[in-house]
């Protein structure tokens, strides 16, 4: 690979996947008080992939950098990335949640400022489940996109082959950098990070940028309005049956056979 890779990994701090989200009293979101937050699991896979690309071809990767757009506490998520081996990190601090289009615009500006030529990020965040940011970022930068990656391979002629998971199986696309890649579940198994590594980065200062100062020309206003957030209808409790005969009878009665 002739152009050296400068890889950006955008990461989002989300409600931990093991917490069951409950709609809040104001019905405008979910209750988060006292809940555990973690890195979006798909972004964790993106971090791992950046580290693996670097390990597999150390000469080809010039830098890995993680960025998060979120509250002050997102620094913990970034510190975790550093402990795993990501080269550097920065936080774009914002109190309000941005829509994917706004996130993509901030990231596009960041990529231009810093000169990254590859972005690897999760295919979706498990809070808003939008699955938009990677594709939007690629469009804003005028780069190709390889979404839902389950395999990424660098080749010698400056190209990246990406195998994507699709509804009907898999497909492979190939593009040179610059490129946006979004990660699917089976791309890799993220590493655990030990306490000693976490301790080492405990006091690492993470640069904090702000939308007002560092992205003042970026339009981040919301395009959609959330009218309300409601709990889905709950199902009537089911019945336990005693044997297969009873089940077949129930299914027959319901004309499901």
């Amino acid at each position: 690979m002739s152009a050296k890779l400068k890889i950006l990994v955008p990461v989002k701090r989300v409600l931990d996947h093991q917490v069951k989200p409950l709609v809040n009293a104001a019905r405008d979101g979910v209750a988060t008080q006292g809940c555990k937050f973690s890195i979006n699991p798909f972004d964790d896979i993106a971090v791992e992939e950046a580290l693996r690309l670097q390990a597999a071809a150390p000469g080809a990767v010039e830098a890995t950098h993680a960025v998060s757009i979120g509250p002050t506490k997102a620094q913990e998520v970034l510190r975790n990335c550093l402990a795993k081996g990501i080269g550097s990190a920065a936080l774009v601090e914002t109190g309000e949640a941005l829509e994917p289009l706004a996130v993509a615009k901030v990231l596009a500006e960041y990529v231009r400022q810093q000169g990254f030529n590859m972005v690897i990020l999760g295919k979706q965040a498990i809070d808003d489940d939008s699955a938009c940011t990677g594709q939007m970022l690629a469009a804003l930068l005028g780069w190709p996109q390889a979404t839902n990656a389950c395999k990424v391979a660098l080749d010698s002629s400056n190209g990246v082959s990406v195998t994507r998971e699709t509804d009907s199986g898999e497909e492979t696309v190939r593009a040179p950098v610059p490129l946006v890649i979004t990660t699917d579940l089976r791309l890799n198994q993220p590493r655990y990070v030990g306490l000693s590594k976490l301790m080492k980065v405990k006091r690492t200062k993470i640069p904090v940028l702000t939308l007002e100062k560092d992205f003042k020309d970026v339009d981040v206003k919301s395009r959609l309005q959330t009218v309300s957030v409601d709990e889905p209808a709950t199902k009537q409790p089911g019945v336990m049956l005693k044997d297969v005969d009873e089940l077949v009878q129930k299914l027959s009665e319901a004309k499901l056979l």
């Binding site: 069951k20 989200p21 979910v30 498990i126 309005q225 959330t226 709990e231």
Partner: peptide, 16 residues
């Protein structure tokens, strides 16, 4: 549209 894996349903107004 569902959010949080369908644990909540968001009603969205789209003025665009």
């Amino acid at each position: 549209r569902p959010i949080y894996a369908g644990n909540a349903l968001a009603t969205i107004e789209c003025p665009q």
